[in-house]
Write a protein that binds this DNA or RNA. Structure first.
Lengths: 261, 261
DNA sequence: GTCTAAAGGACTGGTTTTTAGACCATTTTG
DNA sequence: CAAAATGGTCTAAAAACCAGTCCTTTAGAC
């Protein structure tokens, strides 16, 4: 569709706006989104400014700029001194829901598209893994599934989840596919290599993981694909719930220029 | 593995850099994507630098920086004077693509891996397209298949082939998947000296294309996937041909099934 | 031909953003 | 109390970006 016209074609749609947000703004938005998706528990401490600067590959000044935005918006508080740091503000009031909406809505379509992308890729990964897994793969997958069952707490769960999907991705014996999977998962985590997380989701994942793993181990591609498809729609469901809870509308809402400060 | 430290969450291993791309880089990437997706016809003229600066809301300096990147990478050429401008490079010119080829052309085992990767991705694309294609998609696919049959010569065939697979990729209604497909096809094309074409291959494609298209149109995911799988497993022939053409040696025989990282 | 308009190319000066680093202030821990 | 770990502050320099001016090349009009 959209055949380019003879001359003076319709660049319009695909090549127009270039938002020039500063690094501080982008980092702040990323963190707000992460908070909205439940990446952090209330009261949880973020890495130190110096750590963040190092891992985000950005100067500490920039990190501080982002954190100060969050602080001003009431998402976090900071404490000085040893053992201090930046802490997720517990029970961000209804006032900050507005902020979440403002940050989240413009990115909504993009997020949905990304999750769909991941679902399709992971589906194919599961299918291929079921076709190609070797004895060593089976062993690894078994071990990792067991570890997931024992993991307690959200961080441990995330690591175990990551390990399982990585094990399956590697069982495809195509490094590029495995790398793609890892990259998408990282992106979904909004830079935090972690999924949106709720206890409810963990229970579901806990049920689904062994089944998926068994399908791969058993060498049943279609079943593996079907299960992966269902498994990776978890996040979709969560987003839907979030949208309902925030009474968000994802229609036009094309937030144009909000040149703060 | 990577036991979380006693204190606080193990962000250290999980955080990922925020790439601080400059505006020039981002614009260049956007254009490369659009070109890879076939948004432009070869030889087509982009808007003038001054127009681009206005519509992208950046300075002309920044636009020029982006365009110079594209030029250096061989995606576009520029002509000065009245009626001049920036033009999409018609695929044939291997002159400036030499450099890209050098960087992209993988070692032997990596090429094998790349082709396998493509096969898996395109398989999933065919499957998804068969599930999601709309009436408009069907129309486009029908038209493009017909065009392929009429195409004569190497360039025309290649363009028609590209058009068909792009039409199918778009029928997935996931832009990222379509982009991935385009990127892989481009990389494969460069890896094969931009001419993976023999009369024999064309005859085969001429037989396979309508069948694949019909499966997508008919909405038969499994059949579409199977056909795509077969279609994209011309790899043996291609590899043999490539080896002959480039007098390549298979090098270190790094088992492509290696568990990198 | 000559002239003019429309393009890219090159430069200048100035503002904002980002960086790297040193140093200060505060708080916990040994 | 001393050490260590944290956020807070400041400065100088680099990089990115911008707005504008002028130059060079080229096609088309006269």
């Amino acid at each position: 569709m959209t055949e380019p016209a003879a001359r003076g074609a319709d660049f319009g749609a695909l090549l127009v706006p270039v938002p020039m947000r500063t690094a501080g703004q982008r980092i702040a938005e990323r963190l707000v989104t992460a908070i909205a998706l439940g990446e952090f528990e209330p009261g949880q401490r973020l890495p130190t400014e110096r750590e963040l600067a190092a891992t985000l590959e950005v100067s500490r000044t920039t990190v501080r700029e982002a954190l100060q935005r969050l602080q001003a918006a009431g998402y976090v508080t900071t404490r000085r001194g040893r053992g201090g740091g930046t802490f997720i503000q517990t029970g961000a009031g209804p006032g900050s829901e507005e902020m979440i909406k403002r940050t989240l809505v413009p990115a909504w379509d993009q997020l949905t598209e990304l999750l769909d992308y991941r679902r399709l890729i992971e589906q194919q990964i599961a299918r291929t893994a079921a076709e190609r897994r070797s004895g060593a793969d089976i062993e690894t997958i078994r071990r990792v599934v067991a570890e997931y069952a024992h993991a307690v707490g959200r961080d441990a769960s995330r690591l175990a989840d990551h390990a399982l999907h990585q094990a399956i991705a590697r069982a495809t014996h195509n490094p590029r596919l495995a790398e793609l999977s890892a990259r998408i998962r990282r992106e979904v985590g909004l830079g935090f290599d972690a999924e949106p997380y709720t206890p409810h989701m963990r229970r579901r994942a806990l049920r689904q993981h062994p089944t998926l793993a068994e399908a791969v181990i058993a060498g049943d591609p279609d079943r593996a694909a079907r299960l992966a498809d269902r498994h990776f729609s978890l996040t979709d469901d969560m987003l839907t719930e979030l949208r309902a809870r925030l009474h968000m509308r994802t229609g036009g809402e094309n937030d144009a220029r909000s040149q703060g400060q």
